[in-house]
Nucleic acid binder design. Structure first.
Length: 568
DNA sequence: TCGACTTAGT
């Protein structure tokens, strides 16, 4: 960092501490045109004996915003760290915490730990950030052991400390540890701490123990918004979105204003439950009437429920929230998209745009993929146009497959007309198109013709398409019998496709059969470990879950959600 | 004096 000569402004004011801003105002900008302006610490006791020493030509505002924004690269964090080390600020636990967290964000846990070690004056924030860094990088035992060290240190853990550890327990599916830490929090007098309790509610929900979550919630006399949201999300992800709706009403009754988290929690539950994919029929305005809710709860015949119902819920909920974030928008848009209410999808897309928010690639891709199921080219083009205008086209090509759905069969017919002979690849494309469009009947027909009419033996990829196509439309048994007609060992991609369908359709019995088979033949494959552990979790077999999880390394240690546990 | 607890999707 280049040192600048003393500025006239600085010498003039040298007898009294000055704010960087006033220094700037006094015409220093010409001198510091290139290098912002000099700063000094606001606290008198930090100042050296000389009245003013210019340490660096960087303003606090800049430094703070640099430290608070997430640094995109490790190099940048290292530069900032090196900069701080040249100043007395590196001793300050506040700045040490900021740097530590930036290292953690960039997955450099060793450097984060180094910062922690080198900081002698450790605030609760510093401890918590280090514990969180360990937990988020899946170093569960380091997190717990640091937590234990903290218990013996001369600083007391607070609600956030316990929240970090509790979350780590849930992420690690360690129910026993969760109970112990919960007990510890109560013993430490944090049993009613709002932050700690929010984490507990989320953790218990994540383990499929939403009733336990509710018990934690019930002990709090005046739950804050985060606690409400945690519980509502817990119900949503546990398949009990209707209870979530009741909590939502209760929440408004006591005057708590819902926010984006509330809505996302509700919507996720509704979307997950598949209620939205149900057709038309019932028309009513009394969205929250007990009568209607009863009807919905007691009805197993989902076809009686209508998109009107969920549409009204959504709009109501949405309007009651002032400033929905992208997660909320996306949850809503995805809900409409999956429900097939595409005019709403486009309406919200435009609205999102007008509010100066930008849909990200995942949202656009998801919407396109789900429009693909309707094979509506016009809509697809409109959304695709949106993607192009926003420079998202590179990421959404998978969503554009719907065009090939429609075109594939036309091309195929033309091929035959011209006397061309289709080959294996031709049928791959056709079956792929059927998969994307959910065209079960066409798929079956093409698969049959392929062998009978054109004398082509299906390869593994053709079976994968068929299994996906059948499985995702609920024809699990048919998919399984197709597989059983094959000689052993069955290609793992085929079995994997069926397993994935079993999981998403909630058929745990068949899923376990398939998973065991896969697991036996492919012991090194993490994907099947995760799917299998998901099944074990559903049966509360936490020891089995942990055993599998311990063998998984890297990014895949993050487990999928367990939303079906409570409902199954 | 400042930070932190809760949410989705190909």
């Amino acid at each position: 960092m280049q040192q600048f000569p003393w500025s006239p402004a600085a010498t003039k004011c040298s007898s009294t501490p000055i704010e960087p801003v006033s220094l700037f105002a006094e015409g220093a900008d010409s001198i510091f045109a290139d290098q912002r302006l000099c700063f000094m610490h606001k606290h008198q006791h930090h100042l050296p004996e000389v009245n003013i020493v210019i340490l660096m030509f960087i303003p606090f505002e800049w430094l703070h915003s640099e430290l608070s924004n997430i640094c995109r690269s490790l190099l940048r964090v290292k530069q900032l760290h090196a900069f701080l080390l040249k100043t007395y600020l590196s001793e300050d636990p506040f700045y040490a915490t900021k740097i530590l967290r930036q290292y953690a964000v960039n997955s450099d846990i060793n450097s984060a730990h180094h910062v922690f070690d080198k900081t002698s004056d450790r605030s609760v924030y510093l401890w918590n950030s280090m514990i969180r860094a360990f937990a988020q990088s899946q170093r569960f035992f380091s997190a717990i052991s640091l937590f234990r060290t903290m218990l013996g240190a001369d600083i007391s853990p607070d609600g956030h400390t316990y929240a970090c550890v509790i979350r780590a327990c849930a992420d690690n599916f360690d129910y026993g540890m969760l109970r112990r830490v919960h007990g510890g929090a109560v013993a430490a007098g944090l049993g009613l701490d709002p932050v700690c309790c929010s984490a507990l509610v989320t953790a218990y929900s994540k383990l499929g123990l939403v009733h336990e979550a509710r018990r934690v919630f019930n002990r709090i006399t005046e739950p804050d918004i985060v606690l409400w949201n945690s519980l509502i999300s817990g119900y949503g992800s546990s398949g009990l979105w209707d209870v979530g709706m009741q909590m939502f009403s209760a929440m408004k009754l006591v005057g708590k204003k819902p926010d984006g988290y509330t809505l996302a929690g509700l919507l996720v539950g509704i979307v997950d439950s598949g209620v939205l994919s149900i057709g038309q029929g019932l028309h009513t305005n009394s969205v929250f009437s007990p009568e209607l809710r009863l009807r919905v709860q007691s009805s197993n015949d989902h076809s009686k429920m209508s998109s009107t119902f969920t549409y009204l819920i959504r709009i109501r909920v949405f309007c009651s929230i002032l400033n929905p974030d992208l997660v909320t928008w996306s949850a809503l848009i995805m809900g409409y998209s999956q429900a097939g209410v595409f005019e709403k999808v486009l309406y919200l897309f435009r609205k999102l745009n007008m509010e100066d928010r930008k849909a990200d690639t995942v949202l656009v891709a998801s919407v396109l993929a789900s429009i693909a199921r309707t094979a509506n080219v016009g809509l697809g083009c409109e959304v695709h146009g949106y993607a192009l205008r926003h420079g998202l086209e590179l990421d959404v090509r998978s969503g554009m497959l719907f065009l090939i759905i429609l075109e594939a069969f036309k091309v195929f017919e033309k091929m035959l007309e011209k006397g061309l002979v289709p080959d294996e690849a031709t049928f791959s494309s056709l079956l792929s198109a059927c998969c994307h469009g959910g065209l079960v009947k066409d798929g079956r027909e093409i698969f049959r013709r392929m062998e009978e009419e054109f004398n082509i033996r299906p390869r593994a990829e053709h079976y994968v398409y068929m299994v996906k196509l059948l499985g995702s439309s609920g024809e699990l048994e048919e998919a399984y019998s197709l597989i059983r007609s094959l000689p052993e060992p069955v290609d793992k991609a085929i079995l994997g496709a069926l397993l994935s369908c079993c999981n998403s359709r909630g058929n745990s019995e068949l899923a376990e059969t398939v998973a065991q088979q896969l697991f036996a033949n492919n012991p090194a494959d993490n994907v099947y470990r995760i799917m299998l552990s998901n099944i074990y979790a559903g049966d509360g077999r936490w020891d089995d879950v942990k055993m599998l999880r311990d063998k998984i390394t890297g990014r895949m240690r993050k487990m999928p959600g367990l939303s079906w546990i409570e409902s199954s």
